[in-house]
Amino acid sequence: MIDIILDHYNYWIVIFLMMSGFYTVISQGNLIKKIAGINIFQTSVFLLYISIGYVDDGTPPIIAEGYTTYANPLPHVLILTAIVVGVSTTALGLALVIRIKEAYSTIEEDEIHDKDKSL
């Protein structure tokens, strides 16, 4: 039992990060914190992909003499793209938060809601 947990510790981290990020998005009323939650959530997926690429006794995927077993480079390449996507999402999200702050002079969800209602 302990072995299962220890052998797959990377996946446990993934799950922990995923859940904490997801929980932050859902529970937080502060728009910046929500973005932070999304970021943590996405980071867990990056880790998941990187873990997939791991090969037992593998070396970094560089062709050189004497090395025949190497890690799968494809997930890493994929996740680079996903990271770029994540960064742009964060940038756009933060830009929106700035605009919201200008328009509502607050970034708390409930206060924004009240202001919209009072109109």
Partner: peptide, 25 residues
């Protein structure tokens, strides 16, 4: 309100896309 609508969509959409990404992985 278009700002908050876009923000809400961004959060939901990103969660959705990330779910898709996990599934693909």
């Amino acid at each position: 309100r278009s700002l908050t609508a876009a923000y809400q969509y961004l959060i939901m959409g990103t969660i959705g896309a990330t779910f898709l990404l996990i599934g693909i992985g």
